[in-house]
Amino acid sequence: MIAQELYDLLKTTFSDGILEAKLDGVIDPWVSVAPDRILDVARFLRDDERTQFDLLTLLSGVDMTKGTLAAVYHLYSMKRNHKIVLKTFVPETHPHVQSVASIWRTADWQEREAFDMYGMIFDGHPDLRRILMPDDWDGHPLRKDYQVPEFYNGMKVPY
């Protein structure tokens, strides 16, 4: 399935859940999904006979600046050999996205990573805690406005 067909399919199934899309002029066509519908969309994309996205290749967080965070899902279907990118935009003040860890287990750690690095909250995640940074770390390091602390546990952090 090409990106346009996938978009049309999604638009007819989830009319209000699909916000916008960019299908031409980009290397990876993407579709923007409402943060509170992502779980339904993900389940549909995995289970539907026409899409069969069985592999979540990559889930990443992005700081879009101007108070917006994004979660980006790169989906791939090994059976049908097509791909699509889903994006979810959430405000920094209320960074809640539905977790897709129940759909693809690989999302478990990647959502933890996005939480660790950007402070995005994935509702329904089985075990949302820091994965890379120590548990007692303060702040989310990959946010644009992040300030490196002077000391951590008595160790000087900057050079």
Partner: peptide, 20 residues
Amino acid sequence: NCGGPYWEHGYHVLKGVDRV
């Protein structure tokens, strides 16, 4: 020795093991 290539932006890298 000193943090190597991560000396500048490595927020999670100890800049030299001689600090501990």
